[in-house]
Design a protein around this nucleic acid. Structure first.
Length: 299
DNA sequence: ACCTCGACCTGGGCGC
DNA sequence: TGCGCCCAGGTCGAGG
């Protein structure tokens, strides 16, 4: 008790989880399914979920935007981590380590922990490992759908392009922004347009591109769209390389903390000096989310 | 079709 | 130690 694990799952965090789980789950067969709190299933029948997954083999691990999914034999297991969802593997030969201190950040992390009252779903695998889903706020959700292609998963959830694919071109960005009267930041948070950006990486990308979050999305010129596209790709790739952003106790599927938080330039830093020009970072709300930006560096 | 805003949850942090 | 309030990485649906 007393320790919490908060995940900030935007694209880089979800990709970090996917990569760290891959070697533990790919090719494994589900032997048993436990559902603690069916809320996470959002109305799907518990028995249908359990029986649908038991005996199925996890063929691979996939991600599109913030959506994580696992193709099975004749269906797909799909996970959205919401705000505080964690998907971690618990290996039989390892000791649980509720607390450890991250070398660089000093943040607490866990390498592996036993299920607790926030663990809502557990999949037991044929190698003795268990895949636990833990989610304090329960904004996350699990699905299993009788579809097998990645395209169909993406269209089922109405997701836009993943910004780390070739479909994310300057043209796509320009055309998608052209008709939107909302703030640029709000447009970038729309998962039907670009799948994977969230509050942290949007603020970081806008700062890097030198663009004001509150300006009308439709006003972006093609050259600015190119700058923005590059900035988005760069901040996301950097986030993945850093193993995600750990503000509190984010852990990968293997219990590793990320360290991208050390490189955040504006997110959550309103009221503090701009790392580039020193003027005080502004605070505002766009797309319903708290936003930080530099009014001198971002025009 | 587009947009805004509250609802959905639990817990941390802060002021008193 | 406790209470009340505000805040938090994300959607989703009702209503304008």
């Amino acid at each position: 008790m007393g320790h919490t694990f908060l995940l900030m799952p935007e694209l880089p965090e979800v990709e970090t989880v996917r990569r760290s789980l891959a070697r533990h789950v790919e090719g494994r067969t589900v032997t048993e399914v436990e559902v603690g709190d069916p809320y996470v299933l959002r109305g799907q029948a518990v028995e249908v979920f359990r029986e649908g997954l038991t005996g199925q083999t996890l063929r691979s691990t996939c991600r599109h935007g913030k959506l994580l999914f696992f193709p099975l034999e004749d269906k797909t297991l799909i996970v959205h981590l919401g705000m505080t969802g964690q998907l971690t593997i618990r290996l039989p030969h390892r000791h649980d380590t509720p607390f450890a201190v991250h070398k660089k950040t000093g943040l607490q992390r866990t390498l592996q922990h036993a299920p607790d009252k926030h663990t809502h779903i557990s999949l037991y695998l044929d190698n003795g490992a268990a895949l636990h889903y833990r989610d304090i706020r329960k904004f996350g959700r699990f699905f299993h759908l009788p579809i097998v292609t990645e395209d169909k998963v993406i269209s089922h959830f109405n997701l836009g392009v993943d910004p780390l694919t070739e479909a994310f071109t300057t043209d796509y960005l320009k055309r998608g922004l052209a008709h939107r009267k909302v703030a640029l930041k709000a447009a970038l948070l729309d998962q039907k347009f670009i799948a994977g950006l969230g509050n942290i990486y949007v603020d970081e990308a806008l700062f890097q591109a030198g663009l004001r979050p509150g300006r009308g999305a439709y006003r972006l010129t093609l050259p600015k769209c190119e700058l923005l596209r590059e900035a988005i790709v760069q901040v996301l790739e950097k986030g993945i390389e850093a193993g995600g952003t750990t503000l509190r106790d984010f852990v990968s599927g293997e219990g590793q903390a990320g360290y991208n938080q050390e490189g955040l330039l504006v997110y959550g830093r309103y009221g503090k000096p701009c790392p580039r020009c020193g003027s005080v970072l502004k605070r505002g709300v766009y797309g319903g989310r708290t936003t930080s930006w530099c009014s001198r560096c971002q025009q």
